[in-house]
Design a binder for these strands. Structure first.
Length: 985
DNA sequence: AGGTTGACATA
DNA sequence: GTATGTCAACCTT
């Protein structure tokens, strides 16, 4: 080791306990092996190896070692027999993890050090001294106060759970003494956990004050008679010997004769194969994937390592069942235990034996609990808030929701925050309630509220604490709110998304519906709180008592729903759908919403004017032709005039008995030479474009960002597609030339370009994959025109020189297939007789029998199981598929044919979106993802980076199904850049 | 004031 | 034939 080298010393034993208690006991192997501490350890080590520069440490290590306690007996027991005597045995489900963490260390190719008779802390002290003397720097990965005595100019500590560095200043800040006086301070305060006696009645504050006055422990003991306070003087004098013994117990031994020289601690790059074999055996899928990507290793090619679970708490007992992982804890614990079982020690023996049984038991327990709104607290001062935050951090799980002035998180101002740390234990923190709206000068804020900034400072360590799980309902809203306020909420669960994964297609996932369904509880309707119509008020004007009841109920219900629903994910095998396709999209979509997109307001305004003028001219023509003035926009009036008064040949009637006046019908009449229907169709197009786009979009431009911010809904479609609203940016016109002019108003900022990347024929490719159709596979592999190929197969027409109408019919059939074709629908689409459409379908099924098989099996699965699945395992439920109403049944059958296709395509682009930001960051590109339109992603990037960005975007999208699904047809993405959306697409 | 209908924009 | 969201007109409350 030389000058400039940097040694990382990981306190392995300390980390085990801390990770075990801080992390929810989530991570168990399929066989029940408890591994949450192992996962926490592996994630921490991997992060430090891979990305130490981006942590609070900020430097890359050259040397690295993980250090463990050998056993509980050390030289300190000879000094003081009672040392650590009241340590109880470790929790039963922690025991197998001691050995596993040592295995993990070896799998990372890191030195794994321990020595008989010494604690890990002594080895750390020794190596820290050796490194310091060799001219290197040291970082101790631990937050244990027992190690703080080692901190100095070249030695600091790092708390990986809080991503916080602990140097000299931090020690002084926390303990009131510099690191070199920590030994004396601990000698005075003692340590109840380690059974270090110290001096009774002396805590850290008094100890620091005494050391400040007397300098050090020896001086203090020598001059104890000078202490003014009678009681304190007496206890110190009578406990002087205890203090001296304590000093020897807490003083770390930095001259242990170590077996491994510093040179052996040089950091090696990990062997991907060995590491992945271990991670795979642990079933740490996310980390395995990360490591595989970083080391360029093929996961599939590596077999899981055989991990023997050692029996002893300190890993030196005989192996149990070598070669196979063994379950040590007697009873499986809930995979996703609620607060009641967090860190609760050994499992009780009568817990349910399977995830499904657990889920049922959990639901019964929660449903049985009464929901009393009277227990809700209102937090009015910072000290009380700090207590709640501390309780939440100790529990490790907290439900959280924000109350604001608007449903639009880009315009909302915070009004209050609600927390729930357990069922019925909830509190509301008002920060922005006002007495009246009349006061325009900003006064009128009601008394006894915590200032917003104080509340945020208190909440931030909780909301950003990676060891505390935050639970929300529709958390994207709260995430974006908090992000605007400078807080990154993580980690989190979203009960709306869990419910969506469990039951897409079974009804609403809003919190009031779920409370009703799962808890039989009727929540206070939002409308009852804020009123409606002319009595509508913003939440800041709701009186605090009422707000408290409403907001805390929301948090309370969220945590109860989480307790019921989260275990069901495991029971139903839907954990990975939730964790890979839903949850990670929350911050991704929130950032897209926050970025927004620029539009050219002048261009939209000019278009509005032009559309108005042309529509006006058409109106006059229509009135002249009709012989009277009427409301053209009223289908009822229009139908009466055209088909009643004027006697044009009408078509069908709508279900309410009105004449149908759809564009398709009017087009047909226009083709027969009638003037009026043509004008109506044109008028409708212009007024539609004007009202929905050129007039409406500018209203949505944000006053501060000057951009358009849509809102995405993650749980609004049964198939897994996301939807966009206020404004809907997924239905911006493209088909007509007039419509496309609206697209040209979507622009990049100066110096930037818009990039559009869209999947080519993704749904037909998914169909070719699922149904495994040879001709389709071949056509996509060869890159031929898929509709022309279909036409050629069906009508025997060669692809070269094919008439456009033949291709058009084939295209309609292909679309029809994806939509769960019916002769009625196809006939309608192609304006041909039902019999002819039926013949087409029959012919199609003869040419592609695999498609018929797919359709039949989809329907059958929906009937048998009540749901169908995408290729990634997302379920879409069809509870009405057995309806006795034939049209309801037929509708459900068509939907169950379409859902796996539409849903798999939706899953693919979700996967691309989840990976996109990291991929761009790794490629050092600044492109920002702005919009998603089902099979298309829109980015904004600087002009210089356009060429480098296109291939990265393309690659992520085309490989998005991998490695979960290896598709039998390639995915193809077209990507282009331009100044506006029309040209980029 | 709020909900429903028919029409039409997108994938 | 699938999946959405928004608008104007109209009807109910």
């Amino acid at each position: 080791m030389k000058n400039g080298d940097h040694l990382f010393l990981v306190d392995g034993s300390g980390y085990i306990f801390r990770a075990y208690h801080a992390l929810p006991p989530l991570n168990r192997k399929s066989d029940g092996l408890p591994v949450s501490a192992v996962l926490g350890f592996c994630n921490m080590v991997w992060k430090l190896l891979q990305d130490a520069r981006n942590t609070a440490v900020g430097v890359v290590p050259t040397h690295f070692a993980v250090i463990f306690d050998y056993s509980s007996k050390t030289f300190r027991n000879e000094l003081y027999a009672e040392y650590k005597a009241n340590r109880s045995a470790p929790p039963e489900d922690l025991i197998p993890q001691f050995g596993l963490i040592r295995e993990a260390t070896r799998a990372f190719d890191l030195p794994c050090l321990e020595m008989e008779g010494y604690e890990a802390d002594d080895l750390i002290a020794t190596y820290a001294r050796l490194a310091r003397e060799a001219g290197g720097d040291v970082t101790i990965i631990s937050s244990d106060k027992d190690l703080m005595q080692l901190v100095g100019p070249n030695v600091s500590m790092y708390d990986p759970m809080k991503d916080r560095q602990i140097g000299i200043a931090e020690v002084i800040e926390k303990w009131g003494v510099p690191p070199e006086k920590m030994i004396d301070l601990q000698a005075l305060t003692g340590d109840s956990i380690d059974n270090v006696p110290g001096v009774p009645g002396i805590g850290p504050k008094t100890a620091a004050q005494l050391l400040e006055t007397f300098g050090d422990l020896d001086t203090l003991l020598a001059r104890a008679g000078e202490i003014k306070q009678d009681k304190r003087r007496e206890t110190i004098i009578s406990n002087a010997e205890n203090a001296r013994i304590s000093r020897e117990l807490v003083r770390l031994k930095d001259d242990v004769t170590v077996a491994d020289p510093l040179g052996d601690l040089v950091l090696q790059s990990p062997d991907g194969q060995k590491l992945i074999a271990f991670l795979k055996a642990m079933e740490f899928s996310t980390l395995t994937r990360r490591v595989a990507e970083a080391t360029g290793t093929d996961i599939a090619a590596i077999e899981s390592a055989k991990i023997a679970v050692e029996s002893g708490a300190e890993a030196h007992g005989p192996d149990v069942g070598a070669g196979q992982p063994q379950v040590r804890a007697a009873a499986p614990q809930p995979g996703n235990a609620g607060p009641a079982t967090t860190g609760a020690g050994p499992a009780v023996t009568d817990t349910p034996q399977t995830p499904a049984m657990l889920a049922t038991a959990r639901a019964q327990a929660v449903v049985g609990a009464t929901i009393e709104r009277t227990g809700y607290a209102c937090i009015r001062d910072l000290a009380t808030l700090e207590q709640w935050v501390a309780e939440a951090r100790a529990t490790g799980i907290v439900a959280f929701r924000t109350e604001t002035t608007s449903l639009d998180p880009m315009r909302a101002e915070p009004v209050g925050f609600a927390l729930a740390v357990g069922p019925g234990r909830a509190a509301y923190i008002p920060v922005g309630h006002r007495a009246s709206a009349a006061d325009l000068l900003g006064g009128g804020r009601t008394d006894n509220q915590i200032a917003l900034n104080d509340a945020l400072s208190a909440l931030k360590p909780l909301l950003a604490d990676r060891s505390v799980l935050k639970i929300g309902h529709n958390l994207k809203y709260d995430w974006l709110m908090m992000h605007r306020l400078g807080i990154d909420v993580a980690p989190f669960d979203d009960t709306m998304l869990i419910s969506y994964v469990l039951g897409a297609g079974t009804g609403s996932h809003d919190i009031t519906a779920l409370a009703e369904r799962w808890l039989g509880h009727e929540m206070i309707p939002f409308k009852e709180v804020i009123g409606s119509g002319k009595n509508l008020i913003t939440f800041d004007l709701v009186d605090i008592e009422r707000a408290t009841t409403y907001a805390t109920e929301g948090a309370d219900i969220a945590i109860r729903l989480w307790q019921i629903l989260k275990p069901r994910l495991t029971a139903d095998g839907l954990v990975s759908v939730y964790e890979r396709l839903e949850r990670p999209l929350v911050p991704v979509l929130a950032r897209m919403e926050e970025r927004g997109i620029s539009v050219d307001r002048q261009m939209l305004s000019r278009l509005s004017g032009e559309f108005a003028q042309r529509a006006g001219a058409l109106e006059e023509d229509v009135y002249t032709a009709a012989g009277e003035r009427f409301t053209i926009g009223s289908p009822k009036q229009l139908g009466d005039i055209m088909f009643g008064k004027m006697g044009l040949p009408g078509g069908s009637k709508t279900k309410s008995g009105q004449w149908s006046t759809t564009a398709q019908l009017l087009e047909e009449l226009a083709a027969e030479g009638y003037e009026l229907p043509r004008r109506i169709v044109d008028w409708r197009q212009l007024t539609k474009l004007k009202s929905t786009y050129t007039d409406a979009l500018p209203e949505y431009i944000h006053p501060e960002t000057k951009r358009l911010h849509t809102s995405y809904a993650l749980a609004s479609t049964p198939t897994g597609r996301i939807s966009s609203s206020e404004p809907n940016l997924q239905n911006i016109p493209i088909r007509t030339s007039e419509g496309r002019r609206i697209r040209t108003a979507f622009i990049a900022d100066k110096g930037n370009k818009l990039v559009s990347a869209d999947y080519s024929q993704i749904e037909l490719r998914v169909l070719a994959h699922i149904a495994d159709i040879p001709q389709l596979r071949q056509a996509f592999a060869d890159g031929v025109d898929i509709h022309a190929m279909t036409a050629s197969e069906m009508f025997g027409v060669p692809v070269a020189g094919m008439p456009s109408d033949v291709r058009r019919r084939a295209k309609a059939i292909n679309f029809g297939i994806v939509y769960g074709i019916s002769a009625f629908g196809l006939a309608n689409q192609l304006s041909i007789p039902r019999e002819e459409a039926g013949a087409y379908i029959k012919k199609y099924f003869e040419r592609f029998p695999g498609i018929k098989d797919y359709m039949d099996s989809s329907k059958q699965m929906a009937r048998d199981k009540g749901y169908v699945e995408t290729i990634f395992g997302r379920r879409i439920h069809y509870p009405e598929i057995r309806s006795s109403n034939p049209s309801v049944r037929a509708f459900n059958e068509r939907a169950s044919i379409n859902a796996p296709i539409q849903g798999s395509a939706a899953d693919i682009i979700r996967r691309a979106m989840v990976r996109m930001e990291d991929a761009l960051r790794e490629a050092r590109l600044s492109a920002r993802m702005l919009l998603q339109v089902h099979d298309e992603l829109i980015f904004e990037t600087s002009e210089e980076e356009v060429e480098a960005t296109l291939p990265v975007v393309k690659k992520v999208m085309e490989n998005a199904a991998m490695p979960a699904v290896s598709m039998v047809v390639p995915l193809h993405v077209d990507a282009r850049a331009a100044d506006n959306w029309d040209e980029a697409h």
